[in-house]
Structures are given as C-alpha cells and as structure tokens.
C-alpha cells in the first residue's frame, strides 16, 4: 500500500471539497511549488513535517560496479530531507512496542 498523488487528490476531494479537477491540479501544484523553490536555491520548511534543503557536493572518485572501471562522480547539487522532530516522534511512537 503506497500513497500516491491520486490518493492525495481523492483526499482533497473528500476532505476539502475541491472538485476532482481542482484536487488533481492542487496536488500537482503543491509538489511543483516545492520543486520550483528548490530549483531556485531556496530551502523549503514545512513545519510539522520536515525541511528540504540543498547541498553542494564536490566531485569524488567513483567506480562502475559492473566493470570496476574508475570514473569520477561529478560535482552536483542535491536535495536532502530532514524530518521534523514531530514527524520523527510520530514514527517512533507508532512503532514502539510492536514490530519488536
């Protein structure tokens, strides 16, 4: 059971009362706004959930795992996510005791 954009759109239809079209567009726009902010170098802070941040990685040596050939991993900018304390606690508490 995996949560997808379609599930989120159904939720906005049922809980917020958007029509099907608006619900689908809203979910798409939600993630597009986050992508656009990150693309422009801005971090995204969603209180109660977590922060999306950007990290600049410098070039480092890598290896083709199939051939063993050494090839450099080029410098790049990547997105990292840090869950908020609230989300971390929610996950920890949900698993405390069971799944031992």
């Amino acid at each position: 059971m995996t949560l997808t954009k379609a599930d989120l759109a159904d939720l906005l239809f049922e809980q917020v009362g958007l029509n099907k079209r608006e619900a689908k567009d809203m979910v798409e726009a939600f993630f597009e706004e986050i992508r656009t902010a990150l693309e422009s170098g801005d971090s995204v802070k969603l209180s109660g959930f977590g922060n999306f941040e950007l990290r600049q990685k410098s070039e480092r040596p890598g290896r083709n795992p199939k051939t063993g050939e050494e090839i450099p991993i080029t410098a790049r900018r990547v997105v990292t996510f840090h869950a908020s304390q609230k989300l971390k606690l929610k996950v920890e508490e949900a698993y405390a005791g069971d799944r031992a």
Binding site: L3, T4, D7, L8, L12, F49, V91, A94, Y95
Partner: peptide, 17 residues
C-alpha cells in the same frame, strides 16, 4: 491535508511515491 496524510501514512509504515 496533504502534509497530515503523508505523516500518517509514514507513521503507519506505508511508503509515499
């Protein structure tokens, strides 16, 4: 609603894609 739903699903062990 989107944020709460994502948090609830993760807490119940479900993936989000």
């Amino acid at each position: 609603a989107i944020i709460d739903s994502m948090a609830d699903n993760l807490a119940s062990g479900e993936r989000i894609e």
